[in-house]
Design a protein around this nucleic acid. Structure first.
Lengths: 155, 155
DNA sequence: TGCGATTAAATTGCGTGCGATCTATCTAAA
DNA sequence: TTTAGATAGATCGCACGCAATTTAATCGCA
């Protein structure tokens, strides 16, 4: 947590352009649109791709562990994982040790899709028009912001 | 558009933490959660609040103009505006000059809700834990990123 | 004036995203 | 051992968000 400096009052204007949350919101929409064509060709969606990244990163995880990494609830993940399973990209099975948990892992087909999307994303990265320093700084600041927001909303 | 410098290859790792799009995506989820309680108390949602900001900013706009500001399609805005109308926060009426267009404006009740949310958001801004310089820089970089992405996806 | 092309919004279908709730399983204390 | 509580996923209902399509109004040009 950086110093919790209070924003000066004159920053509190009422225009959309003054809202940091709107900058994040609209940039997220823009990323969705930028990636749309790539994902459509592969037959997956943006959050499904994030799930494949998480699975490729660590393999064999429970729904809860995936949710922690992706910041999603089981009510979101369960249907998403069932769609990935129906597409043949992941497997879901009850853990033998603890039947409450469901373990998810990538199939070879899922790994192939992940790698195709991973290669394709380079053109999107170039489309950001950011120099590497800005890219890295932006990423770091966003993650700090995210974690501060989550920490405060879990008070 | 800044210089379109190519990202160095070694930045292309496969972990969620390396994806700028995931940083934006998850920060957006975090903002949603941070604002949730405030909006719930007021009986609106996060995108509805963005719509109220846009309406307060300029008043009396068509659905298309709102969509341009909010980066949303009519298929998203029409139901959202109907819900705001049902709640009594906006009015929708066909333009007399051009009956294809629908003009939307804030009611006094809508303006009151906007102002209550506007005051309440200060605590969320403090929860970001960002110093003002970082806050401003982040906002500027995000908007540049967003506009570059949108420009490239409209090729 | 007539009529095809264009435009604005609405509708439809599908995939998130979440709170609330439900079910099945596991844990722990009496 | 029994059973109350906790835990992990799944289900349900609702609100986005968009592509594709439809409907209604306007425009353009002969």
């Amino acid at each position: 947590m950086k110093k919790p400096t209070k924003m000066p009052k004159q920053e509190l204007a009422g225009s959309l352009a003054d809202f940091l949350c709107f900058a994040v919101y609209s940039t997220n929409l823009a990323f969705n649109r930028a990636y749309k064509q790539l994902f459509e060709e592969l037959g997956i969606t943006y959050p499904q791709y994030a799930t494949l990244i998480a699975l490729n990163e660590a393999g064999d995880q429970t729904v809860g562990e995936l949710g922690d990494k992706l910041f999603l609830e089981s009510s979101t993940l369960t249907p998403l994982l069932k769609r990935l399973e129906a597409a043949g990209y992941v497997t879901r099975r009850r853990d033998a040790e603890d039947e409450r948990q469901v373990r998810v892992s990538l199939t070879p087909e899922g790994k192939a899709i992940f790698e195709q999307a991973f290669c394709g994303r380079e053109s999107v990265i170039e489309a950001t028009g950011l120099d590497p320093d800005t890219f890295v700084r932006l990423q770091r600041d966003l993650i700090t912001l995210r974690d501060n927001l989550l920490a405060s909303s879990n008070k």
